[in-house]
């Protein structure tokens, strides 16, 4: 469904994602794993279309960019705004309701059902400012439920979330897989990846290993990822791989 072709993304000429190629298994959950600064978030943002790659491309097959739900690492949502929980969840209907469209009974029911699924129906009419960070993350997952997207991108979704909430939300990730959706999540917890993500992309700016989680998360690979990430040079020479690293 999505494949990366020799993808390079850089900041101030230093590559964060470096000549990455591969294909995400459709209908499965892939974890992106790797040390800090390995380009995991950058890769997600590039897939989402927020960052333009230096070279290479992200190729979508039989899916449009509108079929993507994206949960950023730190949501830029201004939680002081006077918006109710149910309204925030309902914003996930945008693709169907659009600019003027009425959020009718059917869509409204979907929003409520999503809140029931994440266990926050009692908070539907509360302002979002009244939620804890764990509850807020549940609300954002409810919005993803409402979006009904075929590709779901999650950037460190369980960062400020307690064990119980993480467990509940991981159950959703499992459900999405059963429904045939593709999930790509940046994660830092080894056990979570092993238990809930059949596929793993281990990266350190470059692909270290990509495939079934068991074969990817070996001690050897993990050690290589850490070592690669540590090699950062301020005065690195221009990359010469297929001549695309040359920029004026």
């Amino acid at each position: 469904m999505i494949s990366l072709h020799n993808l390079t993304v850089s900041y101030q000429r230093h590559p964060a994602v470096h000549h990455v190629s591969g294909r995400f298994a459709p209908g499965q959950a892939t974890a992106i794993f790797g040390p800090n600064g390995a380009g995991k978030s950058t890769l997600l943002k590039t897939i989402m279309g927020a960052i333009r790659p230096d070279s290479g491309e992200v190729q979508f097959d039989a899916i449009s960019r509108k079929d993507i739900a994206y949960l950023p690492q730190q949501s830029e949502i201004d939680r002081s705004l006077p918006v109710s929980v149910i309204d925030l969840v309902s914003s996930g209907h945008w693709r169907r309701s659009g600019l003027f469209g009425n959020v009718g009974r059917q869509l409204d029911d979907a929003s409520w059902n999503a809140l029931v699924t994440v266990g926050l129906e009692d908070f539907a009419l509360h302002p979002v400012s009244a939620l804890s960070s764990g509850q807020f993350q549940r609300v954002l997952f409810a919005r993803i439920l409402v979006q009904d997207a075929r590709l779901i991108l999650l950037d460190e979704p369980f960062n400020a979330v307690d064990a119980r909430t993480t467990f509940d939300l991981l159950a959703l990730v499992r459900r999405w897989q059963e429904e045939g959706r593709t999930v790509i999540a940046v994660l830092h917890d080894y056990e979570q990846v092993r238990a809930f993500f059949p596929q793993t992309l281990l990266m350190a700016r470059e692909v270290v290993a990509w495939g079934a989680t068991d074969t990817v998360l070996t001690d050897d690979n993990l050690k290589r990822a850490t070592e690669t990430a540590a090699h950062w040079q301020a005065n690195a020479p221009v990359c010469a791989v297929d001549g695309q690293g040359v920029r004026s």
Binding site: M48, A50, A69
Partner: peptide, 21 residues
């Protein structure tokens, strides 16, 4: 006319960008 997208954009600009609005 533009009340909904305007409000949504103040609330969550990243979401608006992500859904291509």
């Amino acid at each position: 006319a533009i009340y909904r997208p305007l409000l949504l954009e103040s609330l969550d600009p990243v979401f608006m960008r992500a859904i291509g609005a």
